[in-house]
Design a protein around this nucleic acid. Structure first.
Lengths: 338, 338
DNA sequence: CGGTTACATGAAAGCGGTTACATCGGAGGG
DNA sequence: CCCTCCGATGTAACCGCTTTCATGTAACCG
């Protein structure tokens, strides 16, 4: 077993030509039944497997879908990836992954990946393109779909959650429970990647307040770096004030968990002294009992992948934006204002 | 911009031959500095990018590492994947991913993926090969490394955690705290994928008990399907007995979280009434305060990928088994027996 | 000043498939 | 009975790159 069999070897052994073998193995109707059988037999005997590289070169297709995802290990990313995998699992496409955790990597990938020579389609997850690449991406000959990337993707095909609506939902829920002062803990709006979810969720928060004829107090909004510990510190500060909000909406579950930790530190009982709502509905919510806004993560990945496939395979025009509506999931961290 | 430029176009425009362009672009020292500059210039003008398929076919390499991973969305898997990505990020290899959640998929992948024509190397994560494939894998011409797969990989290169030692560590920790009756909640030992972690951790548990001159009571061991809810039910039952263990070692963090839920249901205070130790050290442990056994997930992925790379690139003989030792992480769910 | 040598470049043969086009034998029609 | 046409197969070009081997040139040497 020194060298893998090629289509040539099969042809020789089966006593037919290359072309016939290729046709037979690709199920062309032009090959007589008997010949086909013989060829398949020989192919198995020789343990033949076609070279993907050769096939791809010849076909002029890469048979590959490239996924560029930011912060692969965040639970959201993994869940979306599974949705993508589900959509691709029974297709002929291979799934190639690039993980982005730095701006440099992002820039590099946006410059080098959207090429016909590299991939048949690009799926970009949770990563808005940098300004300088937008135009090129619009004119790209490679189909691209963005999932969970709002900024700079207006004229590109994308699947989005409605963060504003989600923020409104969360805040509304708290207001309905009778809370008058609702705090907000989120990411700083400006960030190197151009993530907008915190900003948009905040917008929904403001809108809900406005609809109730309210406005947030300056000190009820705390923004900082993403992360549980950072959120805990922010919340600690906010809650130490004796004149504090009775509810907090956090821009992500991770941050909501930080808020919960802060409450615990301060001896505040949840939900009696403080109600908390998060965002995303990651797995941890369930066992912590965190009320949150559910994005349909798996679904967003699946739909993104399907959009991309239909564009690639059927050359269908892509609807510009698919929006997936969030929903509120009530658990144990929210209750009526006491 | 109807057709992407090929190396031919560059050659033509630069007034040199194909060969020279290829050499120039691949940094061969054989090309005169001036020529090289001109070629690079023209290449940029034409926005040239080499076809990967053609390159791969010509080189006879796929420049691809294939990762087969079970249950991609489990936090462990994602973290390991990140380790793999880290090791590969600056290499020339693309990362192709196959997610396995059914036995059928597993069988399919083990049969079709380990081929020179498909990939330069295979990294199998948390998925022991089925019996019938072991021999073929041993004789495979594609370098393969297993990560976190014990069964059927004895004669294959692999990176393993020491589950027995981990189980012993966890149990020892509880014994040192003065607990006399330590329960075990884990997965059924038999399962379609051949996972062995629960069994091995149990073995460590027994060993620690034996070293302390103890033996577990029949009713202190509960096995069932993996999952938080399943574990909660098992623990509920075990803890309802008035004559119950004062500590429980769970075979995974997920299950430990179930045990905690059961304790809460029964009004048992942790750690005063019950100590709980998990396994894995997933992210949730930190905010729940769960004492656990840390496997070095990121590290295991990284080392697996590196092993594979060195085998591929330098044709180094692979050390058979790399074992990564677990360590105990003390948090708030364990305390002295009261 | 002719011959060797080192260096830069070109020509062409792959890599392993797919497929347009040519070919050939036999069935059907006039 | 010959011509046409069709279905099955073969031939060869091509996909775009790498690399061996040949070639030309200029520098170097005795």
């Amino acid at each position: 077993m020194t060298r893998r069999a090629t289509i040539r070897d099969v042809a020789l052994r089966a006593g037919v030509s290359l072309a016939t073998v290729s046709r037979a193995l690709n199920g062309s109707p032009l090959v007589k039944e008997g010949t086909k059988r013989r060829i398949v037999e020989v192919a198995e005997e020789l343990d033949f497997a076609p070279s993907l590289s050769a096939r791809r070169l010849s076909l002029g297709k890469t048979q590959t879908i490239t996924v560029v995802v930011s912060f692969l290990t965040r639970p959201q990313a993994a869940e979306r990836l599974r949705g993508i995998d589900a959509a691709l699992a029974d297709s002929e496409f291979d799934l190639v992954i690039y993980n982005v955790e730095t701006v440099e990597k992002r820039n590099l990938y946006f410059r080098t990946l959207p090429l016909r020579q590299r991939t048949d389609g690009l799926l970009v997850v949770s990563l808005p393109p940098p300004d300088e690449d937008v135009l090129r991406l619009q004119g790209s000959d490679v189909p691209i779909v963005f999932v969970d990337a709002y900024e700079n993707t207006t004229r590109l095909p994308r699947v989005l959650g409605d963060d504003v609506a989600g923020g409104e939902l969360a805040t509304q829920h708290l207001l309905e429970l009778g809370h008058r002062r609702v705090g907000f803990v989120g990411d700083a709006f400006a960030n190197p990647f151009g993530f907008t979810s915190s900003r948009d969720r905040f917008e929904g928060y403001e809108r809900a307040l406005a609809l109730a004829g309210r406005k947030h107090a300056q000190e009820d909004v705390a923004l900082g770096a993403h992360g549980r510990y950072e959120a805990r510190d922010l919340a600690s500060h906010m809650l130490s004030n004796p004149d504090r909000p009775t509810a907090i909406f956090a821009a992500s579950d991770t941050q909501a968990l930080g808020v919960l930790a802060a409450a615990q530190d301060l001896g505040l009982h949840v939900p009696d002294d403080l109600s908390v709502v998060g965002y995303d509905d990651i797995e941890a919510c369930d066992f912590v009992g965190l009320t949150t806004v559910r994005q349909h993560l798996f679904e967003s990945g699946r739909q993104g992948a399907q959009l991309l496939m239909s564009e690639i395979v059927r050359r269908e025009p892509i609807p510009r934006s698919v929006v997936i509506q969030p929903e509120i999931v009530r658990r144990r961290t929210t209750g009526p204002r006491k």
